[in-house]
Design a protein around this nucleic acid. Structure first.
Lengths: 152, 152
DNA sequence: CCGATAATGGGACTCAGTATCATTTATAAA
DNA sequence: TTTATAAATGATACTGAGTCCCATTATCGG
């Protein structure tokens, strides 16, 4: 478990308040927990982690919090062809835009960044007739350690 | 509804037979129907279309057929953050690799291709430590007609 | 402090997808 | 052609993520 990202927690709190919402304990717990996660997690993982630390939050409130955060652009929904969606915070500073590799061997989710890919996506958006708000890239394959094992 | 892609239907039939499976009416209907679809469809859409044409196939058989086809690389599962997955055939000639834009205004699914994007993905796969088997790119935004309406 | 109204949580509910199992059918061998 | 084996099928029960509903609690502007 990582340290709480205070900057993001504050930004989330401020943004939600600015969008006309009231503060609440359940949402505060979800925000804090999301700020501690390093990659996309499922709603169930959030629920369990909070429960394990005696910070139990109703399931409906977890989904409501995720929806609210996604609505103001602070959380991103990630779908990887698994059962259930994952969710992850989008950086307070906008510096941690990344994509994912899902390892078919061990199931691990590996985040990565690639500038050339981002550039290609920008050009693409500029040249097509449609308007692009966001994008998502998912790679399926084997993570570094599983790929090494296979080679051996 | 598009014309049946005979080439793909034959390839699918052959490949499944080669992988040691027996032929069956339900799977044949699913294969034929997939060959007529121009972009990714949900299992429910397949089920309904077949039922509407008096070619009713059990739901379990639809999922089994999709799984078998995906296993031999002739069908691809596509997840777009909606409820439920979509499935689409992968070209018999390998020429129709594409990605998707999901229109947030009208819900339409728009396929697109982009060579620069593919090149970037190839370079990326070559430079990271992990092994990439396949990739998926999803854009969220507005399709050409909805983007035009908004501008007006 | 109060009142309007949003947030919360528990539980019922929905719906995509899976598992089970009895029956039908494809296919290889005799 | 007949038969035996095992796969394919479909009806239905089941699972689990996510939603809906509603009574209760809490926020916060006035």
């Amino acid at each position: 478990m990582t340290r709480i990202d205070t900057e993001w927690v504050e930004k989330a709190t401020t943004e939600l308040h600015a969008s006309g919402r009231r503060a609440g304990g359940a949402r505060a717990e979800v925000i804090t927990q999301l700020s501690r996660e390093t990659c996309a997690v499922t709603a169930e993982q959030l629920e369990r982690t909070l429960a394990d630390e005696n910070r139990r939050v109703g399931r409906a409130s977890i989904y409501r919090a995720l929806e609210a955060l996604a609505h103001v652009g602070l959380v991103q929904r990630v779908d990887l062809g698994e059962t259930g969606s994952r969710w992850e915070r989008i950086g307070a500073n906008g510096h941690d835009h990344h994509h994912h590799l899902l390892c078919s061997a061990c199931g691990q989710l590996v985040p990565f960044e690639d500038q050339r890919l981002e550039t290609a996506l920008q050009h693409l958006a500029a040249n097509k007739e449609f308007t692009v708000d966001s994008h998502e890239v998912t790679l399926h394959g084997r993570c570094a350690s599983c790929a090494a094992k296979q080679a051996a």
